[in-house]
Computed example of a mutant assay.
Amino acid sequence: MLLGLGAFAAVTALGVVVLSGARLHRRLWLALDAGAPAGVVFAHWLIVQSLYVLNKLCPCCAVVWAVTIALFWYLTLHCLERGVLPVPRGVRDVVHDTHRMLLGAWYGVIVLLVLTRFRPYWSSLL
Rank of each mutant, 00 (worst) to 15 (best):
V18C: 06
V48P: 00
L80A: 03
G35H: 04
C61H: 12
H96G: 08
P88H: 05
L19F: 13
G15N: 06
L77W: 04
R100W: 11
R100G: 12
T76N: 06
L14N: 05
A31K: 02
L113K: 00
R119Y: 14
V109C: 09
W73I: 01
Y121C: 05
A10G: 05
V114W: 02
G108F: 06
T76A: 09
V17W: 13
T68A: 10
T116N: 08
R117P: 10
A7D: 09
Y52I: 02
I47P: 00
H25Q: 11
P37R: 03
V17L: 12
L112R: 07
A70H: 01
V67C: 08
H96M: 09
L28G: 02
P88C: 10
Y107R: 03
A43V: 13
L5V: 06
V67A: 10
G15A: 02
L51R: 00
P120G: 01
G108A: 06
A10L: 15
C79P: 04
L80C: 04
L28F: 01
L51V: 09
G4S: 11
G6S: 02
G6T: 07
L28V: 15
I110R: 09
Y121L: 12
L126T: 13
H78E: 11
R82H: 10
V17K: 10
F8Q: 08
P120N: 07
T76S: 11
C79G: 07
Y107I: 13
V41M: 09
Y121F: 14
S20I: 08
W45Y: 12
M1H: 11
R26Y: 08
P88Q: 08
A9V: 11
V114M: 10
V114K: 07
A70Q: 01
A10I: 09
L125A: 10
A31V: 12
L85R: 02
R89N: 08
L24N: 02
G39F: 05
G83W: 04
V18Y: 06
A7K: 07
D97R: 15
S20T: 11
V63H: 02
I110N: 09
V40L: 15
C79K: 00
V64L: 12
L3D: 10
W122E: 00
A22I: 07
L115D: 03
M1S: 12
A22V: 11
F42G: 01
G15F: 05
L80T: 01
P88V: 07
Y74D: 06
W29M: 06
T68F: 00
L57R: 08
V53E: 05
W65H: 14
L14C: 07
W122C: 07
H78R: 13
L19E: 13
G6C: 07
Y121G: 02
C61K: 11
Q49H: 13
R92D: 03
L102Q: 06
H96I: 02
W73D: 03
L54V: 06
C79I: 00
V94L: 14
N55I: 02
N55G: 00
